[in-house]
């Protein structure tokens, strides 16, 4: 009988140990890691037809924290879908949940990149110019 109790105790310990969380997660269920890197690696801009509206690759300045994009003549600036590629484990704030209105070219849109450890935040400005 005593042996059974010992065995049960060991098993319970195993269960407790195996359930221990290795990493914390954020409110979206994403892992919070040790990475402090915080930058945009690529930027894409799609039109209402989900085709790119860029005339060439976007210029990303990770020091100045700016993204410059030239879009095609006749682009519908009110209905664009930006897509960011970020460094590993980083997240974007605010999230992009649908189309974005870029029609006011004098006011660049801003997004903040948050590092994997959620301690570094860098705000990027997206500047659009229309090819003329």
């Amino acid at each position: 009988m005593k042996k059974i109790f010992i065995l049960q105790f060991i098993l319970a310990l195993f269960v407790i140990v195996s359930c221990k969380k290795d990493y914390p997660i954020d409110k979206d269920g994403l892992l919070i890691t040790n990475r402090a890197d915080c930058y945009v690696s690529n930027f894409e801009l799609l039109g209402a037809d989900f085709q790119t509206v860029r005339t060439k690759a976007a210029t990303i300045d990770t020091t100045a924290q700016t993204i410059n994009v030239e879009v095609l003549y006749g682009t519908d600036l009110k209905n664009l879908y930006p897509q960011f590629s970020l460094v590993v484990d980083a997240i974007l704030d605010p999230k992009i949940v649908g189309k974005v209105d870029f029609s006011d070219l004098s006011k660049p849109k801003e997004w903040t990149v948050v590092s994997g450890n959620r301690k570094v935040r860098k705000t990027y400005k997206v500047y659009l110019t229309v090819k003329q």
């Binding site: 209402a48 037809d49 095609l72 006749g74 682009t75 519908d76 009110k78």
Partner: peptide, 14 residues
């Protein structure tokens, strides 16, 4: 909503 009144450079099969 917010649709424009122009479509420039439309393509075949679009």
């Amino acid at each position: 909503a917010d649709a424009p009144d122009f479509a420039i450079n439309v393509k075949a099969e679009g």
